[in-house]
C-alpha cells in the first residue's frame, strides 16, 4: 500500500493523522486565544492584529485552507474510527466496567461534536458575519495607519448577548475537556510518550486546559460584566 493509503486506511495510520491534525488544531486554538486576549489591551492592538492577518491575503487563505483540511480529516477519521470501534464489539457486556479510561477520553466524540457546532456558529458570527453585515462596515482608524475593520467592537457586540456568551463558555469548556485527553493522547499516537514523562505531561495538560478555559471564558465574562466596553 502506498503512503497515503496506509495513513488513511490502517488503524495506526488513522491515529497518526488524528494526532497530527489534532496537533495542528491545538496549535491553532492556542494561537487564536493568544490573539483574542488582546481584547484586554487598548482597541488599537487587536484591530492592528486583525488587519495584519487580513492583509496576508493569499497566505491567509492558504492557512485557512490547511486548517480546514485538518479539520475535515480530523472529523472524517473521527467518524470512521467511531463506527469501526462500535462494530468491533457487536455484543455489549452485561456488566459495563471501566478501569481507568477517563470520562474525557470516553466523551471525545460528543465533546467534539458540540465544539464543531460551536465552530460553525462562531465562523458564521465573526468571520462571515451572517446577520450582522454592518459589522463588516465599521472601521477603526489605526494611530499611524489606515482605517481597518473594527474587530474590537465586533467582539464586544457579539458577546453582549447572554445566550451567545453562555454557548461560547460551554463550547470552550468542552473544547478544553476535549483537549485534556487529546493533548496527551496525540503524543501517545505519535509515539512520543512513555511513562517516564507521562505524569509531567498529564500535569501540563490539566494546567493548560484550565488555563485555556478560564482565559477564553474571561472574554465574554468581561464583556457581560462591563469590564470591556465599546470604544467610542
Amino acid at each position: 500500500m502506498n503512503l497515503l493509503g496506509s495513513l488513511f486506511q490502517s488503524s495506526i495510520g488513522k491515529k497518526l493523522l488524528m494526532a497530527f491534525t489534532g496537533l495542528v488544531l491545538f496549535g491553532f486554538v492556542t494561537g487564536h486565544l493568544i490573539g483574542n486576549l488582546q481584547i484586554f489591551l487598548p482597541p488599537e492592538k487587536i484591530n492592528a492584529y486583525g488587519h495584519m492577518l487580513e492583509s496576508l491575503g493569499a497566505v491567509l487563505w492558504l492557512i485557512r485552507l490547511f486548517l480546514f483540511a485538518c479539520l475535515v480529516i480530523h472529523l472524517w477519521l473521527a467518524i470512521q474510527l467511531t463506527l469501526e470501534n462500535r462494530a468491533a464489539r457487536p455484543v455489549a457486556y452485561g456488566v459495563e466496567h471501566t478501569n481507568r479510561a477517563t470520562l474525557a477520553s470516553r466523551l471525545m466524540a460528543r465533546s467534539g461534536l458540540v465544539v464543531l457546532a460551536f465552530l460553525l456558529f462562531h465562523l458564521a458570527q465573526f468571520t462571515v458575519r451572517i446577520g450582522h453585515p454592518e459589522w463588516s462596515e465599521h472601521t477603526y482608524q489605526l494611530a499611524n495607519g489606515p482605517a481597518v475593520r473594527d474587530v474590537y467592537n465586533m467582539v464586544v457586540h457579539g458577546f453582549s448577548s447572554v445566550s451567545v456568551s453562555v454557548f461560547y463558555i460551554i463550547a470552550v469548556g468542552l473544547l478544553s475537556y476535549h483537549l485534556s485527553h487529546g493533548v496527551v493522547s496525540l503524543l501517545q499516537s505519535l509515539g512520543l510518550k512513555n511513562e517516564r514523562w507521562t505524569r509531567g505531561l498529564e500535569g501540563f495538560a490539566v494546567a493548560y486546559c484550565w488555563g485555556y478555559f478560564l482565559l477564553n471564558a474571561a472574554i465574554p465574562l468581561a464583556v457581560l460584566g462591563g469590564f470591556v466596553q465599546l470604544h467610542s
Binding site: 490502517s10 495506526i12 488513522k14 474510527l81 469501526e84 468491533a88 478501569n99 481507568r100 477517563t102 496527551v184
Partner: peptide, 22 residues
C-alpha cells in the same frame, strides 16, 4: 502485523489504557 490486525476486525486504540489495566 498491523495490516493483519486491522483485517481481523479489531477496533482502534483511543489511548484509554484499559488494556494495560487488566
Amino acid at each position: 502485523m498491523v495490516q493483519t490486525m486491522d483485517a481481523a476486525g479489531f477496533g482502534n486504540c483511543t489511548n484509554q489504557y484499559e488494556c494495560s489495566a487488566v
